[in-house]
Design a protein around this nucleic acid. Structure first.
Lengths: 192, 192
DNA sequence: GTCATAATGGGTCAACTGTCCCAGACGTTT
DNA sequence: AAACGTCTGGGACAGTTGACCCATTATGAC
C-alpha cells in the first residue's frame, strides 16, 4: 500500500523526505502507478494523515488498562507508551511531524483537529472500557482526563526525542500517574 | 538580520517554506547577499535553531514568578505562556517545527538536545530566581520540576494548535498548577 | 481466443530549489 | 581623486520535484 510506504518513508526521512519518488521507490512502484492511484501527492498525504490517526490510537493507547490500583494501572499504561516510543522513535517522531504538516497545509487544518479529537476519544474509550471491569469515578470529566494523558504523552515524546533521557522521562511519568490517580474517586463497593 | 527574517518566514509558512529566496525576499535582500553572509542555507538554519533557544527562553518563561502562593504563581506563569501562545500561535508552532527539523537534520541532532536542555535550565533559572524572594523547597529536584513545566507547555501547545480549545487548555493548566504545587514543601519561617 | 478494462513502465515537461559567478555600486582610507 | 575591500544586483547553472502523456502489459469476463 502506498499509504503505508509513505509512512515508512516519513518515519525514516521525515515529512520533507517523503517525495513522490521516494514513496514509490519504497513501495516498489513507478511514478505512473502512483498517479494512477492518487490524483496528486497532496491527496496521498491527506490519506496518510487520516490513516495514522486510527492506527496510532489502537496500537498505542490500547495498552492502558485500569485495575483496582488506579495509580499503578495508569503508570503501567504510560510506561507501555514510553517503551513503544523507545522501541520505534522514528514512528512517534513521524506522528508529530505529520501533525505539524497538517496544521500547515491548507485544507488539512481541520484534519489536524480531527486527529487530536480522535486521540482524545481513543483514550476515553480505553478508560471507559477499563472502567467497566473496575468502576472508577473521576473528579473531572473523562474527556479532560484523556486530554491530560494525551498532553503528557506528547510532551514526554518531544522531550525524549530531544535528549533521550529515559530515566527523566520515567520520573515525569511517575509524577503524571501520581497526579492523575489523585483525581480518581474510588467507588464504593456496593450497588449504586 | 537574515536569521530573524528566516524566523518570520518559518512562522508564516513553516520550515518547508523557508527557502533561500523566501528568506531574502522577507529581508529585502538579493540571493547574492545571502551567500555573502552565509555559506549555505543549512548554515543559516543552524544559526536559526541556535538563536531561537535563547530568545524563546527569555521571552516566555520569564513571566513565571513565584510568590507566597505557589499554586497561584505557577498558574499565573502557565497562563502567561498560554496567552503568549494564543497571541502568536505561528511562533510557537515554528518553535516546535524547528525542534523537529533539528532532530531530522544530520549534524543538528545535538543542537536539538542542547535546545531542550536550554529550555530546562531556563526554567530552572526562573524558579531559582523566584525562590530567592520566597524560598521554596521541592519534593523532587528542581530540574525535574522544570522538566514537568516544559513538558506541560509543549503538550498544551500541540493540543491548542490542533483544536484551539482555550478553555480545555486552561483546565489542563489548572491541573498542572495543582499537581506541581503539591510538590512544593513550604519552608519553615525560621532560619535553617 | 477476444476484447475491454485495469495497471504499469519509460520518458518528458515546467517549476522550483540551492549555489555560484561576475560586473558594478558603495563607502572608507590614502 | 584614486584605490581598496565590502557589499549588492542580475543572471545562470545543475539537480530535484510533482505532474503528465503514451505505448505496453497483465487481468479477467465472455
Amino acid at each position: 500500500m502506498l499509504v503505508q510506504a509513505a509512512i515508512r518513508v516519513i518515519a525514516a526521512q521525515g515529512v520533507a523526505g517523503a517525495t513522490t519518488r521516494a514513496i514509490v521507490a519504497e513501495a516498489g512502484m513507478s511514478l505512473a502507478s502512483f498517479h494512477y492511484a492518487f490524483r496528486s501527492h497532496a491527496e496521498l498525504m491527506r490519506e496518510v494523515v487520516s490513516y495514522v490517526v486510527d492506527a496510532e490510537i489502537t496500537s498505542v493507547f490500547s495498552s492502558l488498562r485500569l485495575g483496582t490500583d488506579i495509580r499503578r494501572a495508569l503508570r503501567d499504561g504510560l510506561q507501555a507508551y514510553l517503551d513503544y516510543l523507545i522501541a520505534d522513535p522514528e514512528h512517534e517522531q513521524a506522528m508529530q511531524e505529520l501533525m505539524h504538516y497538517a496544521l500547515r497545509t491548507p485544507g488539512l487544518e481541520s484534519l489536524a483537529a480531527e486527529q487530536y479529537s480522535a486521540y482524545l476519544s481513543g483514550v476515553v474509550d480505553v478508560l471507559t472500557e477499563s472502567a467497566a471491569a473496575v468502576p472508577v469515578e473521576w473528579a473531572i470529566p473523562l474527556p479532560d482526563i484523556a486530554r491530560l494523558v494525551v498532553m503528557t504523552t506528547h510532551g514526554v515524546t518531544l522531550a525524549w526525542l530531544a535528549d533521550r533521557d529515559t530515566a527523566a522521562a520515567e520520573r515525569v511519568l511517575d509524577f503524571a500517574a501520581d497526579s492523575l490517580a489523585a483525581l480518581a474517586v474510588l467507588p464504593i463497593r456496593s450497588v449504586t
